[in-house]
Nucleic acid binder design. Sequence first.
DNA 1: TATGAATGAGTCTTCATTCAT
DNA 2: GATGAATGAAGACTCATTCAT
Lengths: 196, 196, 196, 196
Amino acid sequence: MAAVPDGTGQTTATRGRRDPGARRQAIVRAASDLLVEGGGDLTHRRVAERADVPLGATTYYFSSLDELREAGLELLATELDEALAEMRQEAAESSGDPEVLASLLHDYLSDQNQVRADAALYGAAIQRPELRALALRWFDGVVELLSDWADPATAQLLAVFADGACLHATFHGQPLDRAAIARAMTALMGPAKDER
Amino acid sequence: MAAVPDGTGQTTATRGRRDPGARRQAIVRAASDLLVEGGGDLTHRRVAERADVPLGATTYYFSSLDELREAGLELLATELDEALAEMRQEAAESSGDPEVLASLLHDYLSDQNQVRADAALYGAAIQRPELRALALRWFDGVVELLSDWADPATAQLLAVFADGACLHATFHGQPLDRAAIARAMTALMGPAKDER
Amino acid sequence: MAAVPDGTGQTTATRGRRDPGARRQAIVRAASDLLVEGGGDLTHRRVAERADVPLGATTYYFSSLDELREAGLELLATELDEALAEMRQEAAESSGDPEVLASLLHDYLSDQNQVRADAALYGAAIQRPELRALALRWFDGVVELLSDWADPATAQLLAVFADGACLHATFHGQPLDRAAIARAMTALMGPAKDER
Amino acid sequence: MAAVPDGTGQTTATRGRRDPGARRQAIVRAASDLLVEGGGDLTHRRVAERADVPLGATTYYFSSLDELREAGLELLATELDEALAEMRQEAAESSGDPEVLASLLHDYLSDQNQVRADAALYGAAIQRPELRALALRWFDGVVELLSDWADPATAQLLAVFADGACLHATFHGQPLDRAAIARAMTALMGPAKDER
DNA sequence: TATGAATGAGTCTTCATTCAT
DNA sequence: GATGAATGAAGACTCATTCAT
C-alpha cells in the first residue's frame, strides 16, 4: 500500500533499529491509540510524538494524514476482528445457548478498551463516509460469528442489537445488565427454536 | 422565537439585520446543518458562510466554537425530540402493536435526514464525552415513548435495538427490512404478552 | 476634554443613577485599577466590566482607548500627588531631618499599592513616550517636596534616588532597609551639614 | 554562534536559508530591537517583518509569543551585561575614584541605546512580574561591579541611584549632569571612607 | 533512505470602533 | 443621551505538507 518495504518477506521485520516495517507499525499503532483515546484531532505531530519517531517519518510512510488515519482505523478493525475470533472459539464450546452468547457480549462490553475502540471506529465512520467500509467489515464479522448459531436473518438482528448495546455502553460508561442482554438475545433467537 | 422588535412595525422578527434572535438562530441552524452533512470539521468560517453572516457574528453570539457546536447539536436533539413526539402520537392510535411500532421505526429510518441527524448526534457524542448528555437525552426520549407500550426494561431493549438499527441504516444507506424490524420488535416485546 | 458635562459645577455630581460625571469617573477609576493590577492589556471590555457599566459607555465617554488609558494614568498621577501632599505635611513637622525623610520614604515604599501605582505609571511612560509628561509631573512633585529641605540640586538627586528605590521595591517586592535609605539620604543631603 | 553547516564549504554560518542558528538569532534580534524601540505591542507579525522571515518562522522557533519576548529581553540583558563588563575594565584602571565612576555612569547614560535598552527591560519587568528575574539580574550585575570599589551595602545604594538616574535619563531624554552624578556618588561612597 | 527545517494557509479568538435604535 | 449589536482587522498559534540535505 506504500512503496516502503515492510519486511513481510521473512524475518527481517520487527527488529528495532532501522526497521522500516517496525517503524511503520509503530506509527500506525500510535495513530490507532490516539484515535481511541480521543482528546484532540489526529495530527502528524501527535502521532510522531506518541510513536516516538521523528515528524518526518509520519509523512514519509503515509502520503497524507487521511491515509494515516485510515491505517490506524484499519488496525483497530483488525484487532476487533481478532477479539471476535477469540469469542468465536469460546462460543464454539457452548452449543449456541443464548445465555452463553449473552455472557460473551456482556464480557465484551465490560472491556472499556474494546468498547472505546469500537466506538472510535463507528464515530469515524459516521463522520467520514469513505470509512464506512471499515465499519461494515466489523459488523459483517459479528454477523458471521452469530451465523454459527442462528440463521442469517436472525444473526443480523442480533448484530444490530449488539451494536446498539455497544453504543449504550459507550454513552453510559457501563454495559447493559447481563440479564437484560440475555433476555434480548433469547427473544431474538427464540423463533429459531420454535422452528421445530 | 426572536422577541426583538425589528422596527418594521410587524412582529415577524425573522429578518437579517438587527434581529439578534433570528441571527443567532440562523447561526445555530447553519452549524446544525453542517454537523449533519459532515464533510470536514465544524469551523467558524464554514458556519458563517453557510448562515450568510460575517465571520465576527459567529464569535459574537457564541463565546467559543465548542459552545456553538453544542448549540447546533442541541438543535438537532430538539428536532429529533419533536419527531419523536409526532411518532408518539401516531403510535397512540395503534394499541401498541409491535407491527405498528416497527413500521414507525422503519419509516423513521427511511428518512435519510432523520438518520443522518441521529448519526451526527451520536458521532459527536462518541468523540466528545462532554456531549454524551445530549445523546442520552435522545436515547431516554425513545425509551420513554416505548414505555407507553412496554415495561421499562423492555422499552430499554427496544431502544437499544433501535439505536443499532439506526447505525445500520447510517452505514448501509438504507434501513433494515420492515419485516426484519417487525420480527425483532415482536420478539423483544413478545414475552410480556405471551406471559399468560 | 470631552463634550460631556462632568458636574464639576456643583452638587449635581457624584450621584448614582444617570449621573454622567460619576459614570465617567467610575470608568476612569476602573481603568486606573486595571492599569495597576496589570495582568492583561487594557481593553474597553475589561474596563466596562470592572466599572460595571455597559460596553458602549466606555466609548461614549472616551473617543479612543488611548484617551481612556491616559485618563486612567492621570488619575493615578493625581492620587500619587495627593499622597505626596500628605507626606509633605508630615515632613513639615520635622525639621528636614534626613532620618525623618528616610522614614517617610520607607513608609511610602512599604505600601504596595503606592509602589505598584508608581511602577504602573513609570512602566506606561517607558513604553509610550507620549505619556512621559505624566511621569515627569510626578518626579517634579517629589523634587518640589524635597526642595523644602534641600537645595534644588540636592532635591533632584534625592528624587532620583527615591525613584531608584521605588524600582527596587517593585522588583524585590519589598523596600530597602530603612537604615540603608537613611544612610543614603543623609549622605546626599550631607553638604547641608557641612554648611556650618 | 550557529554551528550549522551551510553547505558552502565555508564556516561563515550567518546566512539565511537553512541556517537555524542564524535564523533564530535574527528573530531574537528583531524582537529585541522592537522592544527597545517601543511603539506598539510586540507581535509575531512585527517581529517577522523586522527580521525579514516568514511569519511561520517566528512560531516555529518559539513556542509562544511570551517565549519570544523573553528571548528578546534576554538578549537585551546579555548585551547590557557585556556593556557592564567593559565598564568594569575601564573602572579597573581607576582606583575607584567616585569621579571616575560618575564619568562612567554619565557616559553610559549618554548613550541613548543603552538607556533605552535598560528602560525597555525595566518596563517589561514592571508589567510582567514573571520577567523580574531578568531585571534583577541586571541590577545585581551593577551591584557586583560597584562592589569592586565599595562595600556591598554602599554598592547597593549606588546601584539604586544609578537605576533612578537611568529612569531620569529615559524620561528627560538626556542624562543628569556629570557633576551632579559625581556629587551623588561621592556622597554615597564617602561615609565608608570616613568610617575610620 | 530519512528527517527536520520551513512556510503559508487556515484556525479560534479578541477587540476597537462604528452605528442603528 | 446611551447602548448593545455588529464587524472587519488583526493576533496567536497549529499544521499538513514540501523540500533541501
